[in-house]
Amino acid sequence: MTTSTRICAGRVAVVTGAGRGLGRAHALALAAEGARVVVNDIGAALDGSGKAAGPAAEVVAEIRAAGGDAVAHAGDIATSDGAAALIATALDTYGRLDTLVNNAGFLRDRMLVNLDEDDWDAVLRVHLKGHFLPLKHAAAHWRAEAKAGRTPEARVVNTSSGAGLSGSVGQGNYSAAKAGILGLTLVAAAEMGRYGVQVNAIAPAARTRMTEQTFAETMAAPQDGAAFDAMAPENVSPLVVWLSAAASAGVTGRVFEAEAGRITVMEGWHPGPTADKGARWTPAEAGETALKLLASARAPEGVYGAS
């Protein structure tokens, strides 16, 4: 059994999409480490349809039953009003905000030729816009605090995916959204550092509603007596808790893969082989040069699901 270090004692954390799966695990872990938690979840189905207050309320009840402090928020954080209300819930209830964990999302998987415009818009809305708007409203509060001479030790943890890092067949909308979250993370870290805000991203792999069909075999729960459930969402939460805490000072603009007992720092795009003619290429020269450069370049990572 893991012993609490109270690494987040005194902090207030907001977690979106916290009614189930990874978000629920993060909310429970943050509360166990002393954070007061705003549990956001609109209670939608896997494809984003419908609403229900139950999932958020159930996690709040779990936290309180364990001796923690939490409040539910069931609003739509992909709207400006909903995101503003989420941040206001933390400030009105607890008088402060220290950490934002952006996690909400759902899937509408299709091959590109079968992907409807509505499915594209809906997935980018909840994942990418649903990261941007809570971040915008939280950042505005933290900037105001810093300008008033109360520079915070604020933390943002965004949720990308291996699909955002490498792509995933049948998930063009999801992959694009998750890649966009990585760009948003880098920009937010650069812009908000002067105000005491650190922004990082994780690319988790775990057994949740969103992954159980795609990875049914590899993510199956272990049989009774197994020592370690490698795909439990709770395995990802310790890194999220640390990134949410003041103890992570100096770590910003980073992307981590987290799966089972493994943590990997992702190094992103770096310049590879290059050639400079000092003048304009002809198409034939450009093609010949590109092939030479590719021959000495590192092969790209494979796309998930590609043969």
Rank of each mutant, 00 (worst) to 15 (best):
M1Q: 04
M1E: 08
T3H: 06
R6W: 02
R6A: 12
I7Y: 01
C8S: 11
V15S: 01
V15H: 00
G19T: 07
G21E: 06
L22Q: 14
G23Q: 08
A29I: 05
A35T: 01
R36P: 00
R36K: 15
V38R: 00
N40R: 12
D41C: 11
D41N: 11
A44M: 13
A45H: 13
L46G: 03
L46W: 08
A52E: 13
A52V: 04
G54N: 06
P55H: 11
E58M: 03
A61D: 11
A61I: 08
R64L: 08
A66G: 15
G68T: 04
A70R: 00
V71D: 02
A72E: 14
H73V: 00
S80Q: 13
G82V: 02
I87W: 04
T89G: 00
T89M: 00
D92G: 11
Y94H: 04
L97A: 02
D98N: 11
D98V: 00
L100H: 01
N103K: 02
L107P: 02
D109K: 02
M111S: 04
L112C: 08
L112D: 08
V113L: 12
L115D: 05
D119P: 11
H127Q: 04
G130N: 09
F132D: 05
F132H: 10
P134Y: 15
L135P: 02
K136I: 03
W142H: 05
K147Y: 07
T151Q: 15
T151S: 12
S160E: 03
S161R: 04
G162T: 09
L165I: 15
G167H: 08
G172V: 10
N173D: 13
N173Y: 06
A176E: 09
A177E: 08
A177H: 04
A177Q: 05
A177S: 12
G183S: 15
L186V: 15
M192Y: 15
G193Q: 06
R194T: 14
Y195R: 04
Q198C: 13
V199K: 06
N200S: 06
I202Q: 05
A203R: 01
A206M: 12
Q213F: 05
T218P: 01
A220L: 07
A227E: 14
A227I: 14
A232I: 09
P233G: 13
V236Y: 05
P238Q: 04
W242T: 09
L243E: 03
S248Q: 10
S248D: 09
G250L: 03
F256K: 01
A258T: 15
I263F: 12
I263V: 15
V265M: 04
G268W: 10
P271I: 14
G278K: 01
T282M: 11
A284D: 15
A284W: 07
A286C: 10
A286M: 13
A290I: 07
A295V: 14
R298W: 06
A299N: 03
A299P: 01
A299L: 09
P300H: 13
V303Y: 12
G305V: 08
S307V: 07
